[in-house]
């Protein structure tokens, strides 16, 4: 009792981990969304941006893997805390109410956090396989029959979203993300202790603004790709020679 390690083993500590890892992912998503808006600047600009990331932010290729491992740790911590807390919560009420516990105020985003989180994990695996690893290269269904080319992220995105079914999957995932963030961002600030009434405006402001901005940015890009707003990729596009070594 009263130990330094309370934060590690307590339910509150797991929630702090949940909040911190969640906010790390929100930060990452904000950059990811902003980067996607470069699609509107055309093939050269977007591929330059993709190369900047692929080359380790123009510094050191190992940095890309550092970033990936850091995000993987955040996702792993988030899931571990979610599973541990869900088990604790289930054990805390072994006998359910016969009349069914009635909710007075809770919201659908809050009630769908677990199932939505699992859906987002499945989507993440698909998304990484689809556009980051290119395992569906050449697939008629998932890539419009075009090859996945690492350096041509612009073409990958347009070919990858050429099938409306894939596009709808991306849109659904974006909506699920918005719902997850709608409850998650406010909750993270709350868990991390922003209790003073002075912080209320910031808590609810960011809690609403962050999901709207992130979802809005992604939806615009996906719809633009599906609706043919982006110029068709130039099949003759080649990465500059200095990228390839």
């Amino acid at each position: 009792m009263n130990s330094v390690t309370t934060i590690v083993h307590s339910s509150v500590g797991k929630k702090v981990l949940m909040g911190v890892t969640g906010l790390i992912m929100v930060g990452w998503l904000t950059i990811h969304m902003a980067g996607h808006l470069i699609m509107f600047s055309g093939q050269d600009a977007y591929n330059n941006y993709a190369h900047f990331i692929q080359s380790g932010f123009g510094l050191e290729p190992a940095l890309l893997w550092g970033m990936r491992l850091f995000m993987l740790a955040a996702i792993g911590g988030h899931i571990w805390a979610a599973v541990a807390l869900t088990q604790q919560n289930a054990a805390a009420r072994p006998v359910a109410y016969a009349a069914g516990r009635q909710n007075r105020v809770t919201t659908y985003p809050a009630r769908l956090m677990r199932i939505g989180g699992m859906f987002l994990l499945l989507y993440l695996i698909f998304h990484l396989a689809h556009l980051t690893a290119g395992v569906l290269s050449g697939s008629e269904f998932a890539m419009g029959g075009k090859p996945w080319v690492k350096e041509d992220a612009y073409a990958n995105m347009i070919h990858g979203l050429s099938n409306p079914v894939i596009g709808v999957v991306y849109l659904l995932a974006t909506v699920a993300l918005g719902a997850h963030l709608r409850h998650g961002v406010w909750s993270a600030f709350h868990t991390l202790g922003l209790s003073d009434p002075r912080w209320d405006a910031i808590k609810s402001g960011l809690g609403n603004l962050v999901p709207v901005a992130i979802v809005g940015g992604f939806v615009v890009v996906v719809l633009a790709a599906m609706g043919g707003v982006f110029a068709p990729p130039d099949p003759a596009w080649h990465p500059p020679a200095h990228w390839l070594h």
């Binding site: 309370t6 339910s11 007075r104 105020v105």
Partner: peptide, 25 residues
């Protein structure tokens, strides 16, 4: 706070998921 949170977990209560049902009840 350290002692009370430790005891709360040891008693087998669940964790908070910010549904705010407690506040309403």
């Amino acid at each position: 706070v350290l002692g009370m949170v430790d005891q709360m977990d040891a008693e087998g209560f669940g964790g908070c998921t910010n549904h705010r049902e407690c506040e309403a009840a």
